[in-house]
């Protein structure tokens, strides 16, 4: 097997193994040293003292999902942009920077339009904006 330069990934594997070792290791050491007398009161969720009511897993406002949605679209956009940005300098030195600049600006402006759309439709503001809808009704 021709050994090719995979040594670059050795530290990553070692660091992840170290992180897990530190994590699980100190928990195991702790398990030996620590007092462990669980009782019902300690085990219940913290509700500022009162009895916890119902499960916490009630569903939430959709606003969290819209934020995650806009995040992943811009995440993918930046992932696509990274290789092009990395070679922009070489293109510029060769003289082909202009065309690449135009395509990069086109790419960004299309997605900027998406951000402006979400901004105008009120997806980005966290508090329900009542001013628009109530104003129409009062008149």
């Amino acid at each position: 097997m021709s050994t090719y330069n995979l040594d670059v990934y050795m530290p990553i594997v070692i660091l992840i193994i170290l992180a897990l070792a530190i994590g699980l290791g100190s928990l195991l050491i702790g398990k030996l040293l620590r007092p462990s007398n669980p009782n019902k009161l300690k085990e219940s969720a913290y509700e500022c003292g009162e009895e916890p009511v119902g499960t916490a897993w009630a569903n939430f406002n959709v606003r969290f999902y819209v934020i995650a949605l806009i995040f992943i679209i811009f995440d993918v956009e930046s992932a696509l942009m990274f290789p092009v940005a990395a070679v922009f300098k070489q293109f510029n030195q060769v003289g082909a920077g202009g065309t690449l600049l135009v395509s990069v600006l086109l790419f960004i402006s299309i997605l900027l339009a998406g951000l402006v759309y979400c901004w105008k439709k009120g997806d980005l503001d966290w508090v329900k904006s009542f001013n628009t809808s109530t104003k129409l009704k009062d008149k």
Binding site: G23, L24, L27, R34, P35, N37, E43, A45
Partner: peptide, 22 residues
């Protein structure tokens, strides 16, 4: 921190309770 008791709430999901800090 090491000497403190490590409490897992009964209603908690013990597998994810351990995975999250790791």
């Amino acid at each position: 921190m090491i000497m403190k008791e490590d409490i897992t709430p009964k209603a908690a999901d013990s597998f994810i309770f351990l995975i999250a800090p790791l």
